[in-house]
Computed example of a mutant assay.
Amino acid sequence: MRKKIVILFSVYLLAFALLFSTSLRAQSTSKKPLVVFVTGDHEYSGEFTLPLIAAELEKNYNMRVKVLKSSPDQNAEENIPGLEALKEADLAVFYLRWRRLPAEQVKYIDDYLKSGKPIMGFRTSTHSFNYPAGHPLEKWNAFGEFALGSPPGWGGKANHTHCGHECSTDVTVIPEAAKHPILKGVDPSFHVRSWLYKVIPDYPAKGATWLLMGKAVNPDKPNYADNPVAWTWKTANGARVFATTMGHPEDFQVESFQRLVINAIHWTLNKPVPDTWKGKLDINVPYRGMTKN
Rank of each mutant, 00 (worst) to 15 (best):
K278S: 13
G153L: 09
Y61L: 05
D187S: 15
G164L: 01
T232W: 08
F37D: 12
V285K: 03
F242Q: 07
A15Y: 12
P204I: 07
E84K: 07
H135D: 15
K179I: 00
G289E: 02
F20A: 15
P72R: 08
R25K: 05
D110C: 01
D90G: 13
P219C: 08
L269K: 00
L183W: 11
W195D: 15
F252I: 03
Y131C: 03
A103D: 13
S30R: 12
D282Y: 09
T172I: 05
I265S: 01
T276R: 05
L13Q: 11
G121D: 12
D251S: 08
T29D: 15
A158G: 01
P272R: 04
P118G: 10
E84G: 07
K271P: 00
V173Q: 09
K114E: 05
Y112S: 13
K117Q: 06
K280E: 13
K139F: 14
T161Q: 06
W267P: 03
H266Y: 11
Y131T: 07
S168K: 01
D41P: 06
A239K: 01
G238A: 03
S45R: 15
C163Y: 12
D275I: 00
T126S: 12
L83H: 11
E250N: 10
S23N: 09
L24R: 14
T245P: 00
S71T: 10
K3N: 14
Y108L: 02
K271H: 11
G289C: 06
W210F: 10
P228G: 00
H191A: 10
P204H: 11
P222F: 08
D111V: 04
H191Y: 12
F122K: 01
P118I: 03
A225H: 05
V229M: 06
V106G: 01
Y95M: 03
L113R: 12
Y112T: 13
S256W: 07
V285M: 02
P81G: 03
A177E: 10
A216F: 10
H165G: 15
D282A: 13
H165C: 05
T291G: 10
D226R: 09
I80N: 12
A177C: 08
R240S: 14
A17V: 05
C163R: 09
P151R: 01
W277Y: 15
V171M: 02
M1G: 15
Q27V: 00
E145F: 06
